[in-house]
Nucleic acid binder design. Sequence first.
DNA 1: CGACAATTTGACTCAAGTCAACTAGGGTGG
DNA 2: CCACCCTAGTTGACTTGAGTCAAATTGTCG
Lengths: 248, 248
Amino acid sequence: MARNSAADHGPPHREAHCEDCSLSPICLPMAVSDADLHRLESIIERGRPLQRGEHVFRSGTPFESIYAVRSGALKTYRLTPEGDEQIMGFHLPGEMFGLGGLGGEIHPNATVALETSTVCEVPFERIGGLAIEIPGLQRHLFKIMSREISEDEQLLVLLSKRSAEERIAALLLGLAARFRRRNLSATRFRLPMSRGDIGNYLGLVVETVSRVFTRLQAQGLIEVEGKEVSILDPVALSAVAGIQVEGD
Amino acid sequence: MARNSAADHGPPHREAHCEDCSLSPICLPMAVSDADLHRLESIIERGRPLQRGEHVFRSGTPFESIYAVRSGALKTYRLTPEGDEQIMGFHLPGEMFGLGGLGGEIHPNATVALETSTVCEVPFERIGGLAIEIPGLQRHLFKIMSREISEDEQLLVLLSKRSAEERIAALLLGLAARFRRRNLSATRFRLPMSRGDIGNYLGLVVETVSRVFTRLQAQGLIEVEGKEVSILDPVALSAVAGIQVEGD
DNA sequence: CGACAATTTGACTCAAGTCAACTAGGGTGG
DNA sequence: CCACCCTAGTTGACTTGAGTCAAATTGTCG
């Protein structure tokens, strides 16, 4: 996360700042306690930008680090025995990913860039030791893992109990909330993922996703132009979603 | 877990033994390192038997402990905003539960006994400190949490990609594997949960569960008499399940 | 022995999937 | 600069697996 607002070009707020990154409790204390920026930089690896379709890690590769999104967007998925993918979540700037394999030897899931993205990498090896030195860090790690569990379980409810309309509405509201958290517009944003990805994530086929979008638009709740989405009537949309605004 | 085979009455192998309990890496080292059984007993609380329908904890109550099943069977569920439940998993002897709230303040889920059960309780407060003293314990905690994530994600795949037949077949094979782990018959066992619970867990209505059972029986794959199930053709059943044998 | 809960079975309905055709973008190479 | 191709997205027509409603049956427990 070090060096957040990177260069001065590019749209504002497109990148996550260290302060509102989920990893900050890990990164920041290291910098503060040592006041040694070099040490921090040696732990937090800032990879080169990933192109759309490039993997951060694949299923079955050894688990070594946890990650945070600096810019762009990614998805993590797992492969079914038949070889088709099931998307477990999308990751936007400031959010973490790669926790699925924590404690194990290998990644059960894979994570791939949906668009050009940059990520911060924290080698887990070093966190392990640090968790003992820095009080509260261990608890923080537990917390982010339990958040992961919670998000999966939220999705479970969505998949097993909700109609196509409810799922899409919940997804849109969830994304809106996440954009708002980054001080971006929660009423107008660009979907980083394809219709296919949305469908896969929500347990629907592309055609259904497409149809629901047009249906919601016809009702005046949203406006869609390709990947650009405007939420015209957040209240009504929440009603469609059944209040429950999903988290991931 | 202390005092495993409890009294000498009751059916054999009905209870979990400390050695094959998921909590043993937590419980056992304490006893060993101190050789102080009293201290162990003061940490591992063995509650009185829970009757069917009794809660171990409810959603919204403060998170204080993690648990293991000694005997019986339980389910953990979360309530949707509309107030109906979504079952996240079933817990059999030797398995852990209550990790959903780890790191947080309150339990997002609730866990209730499906039949008369006994559980071991480990106050989390004390584990926190112990994780620092006992090397490997911290990693073990991460591991069991990531297993929880993995199980949820396995269920996600089941819910979003599988037909009713596949879901039921996967559930039966998953249960069979868990009985086998306890050295019980993997081909003939008693379902601890109702049809309604199965349906809720798998995202199906009771009627569908019932119909699938009779259909699988008609095909000669299983035999069902109330809660007693025999798996007559495990190979064919695996084929129906699409190989993938779910874990929780 | 009732009374109520759980399970099964049948008839019917419908939300979402499948199949198929068509359109709109988005590069790329000539 | 544009013709072309390939992928993503949309729309329509049809099918179907699972849900709903309802009724009968069995199981359980006070």
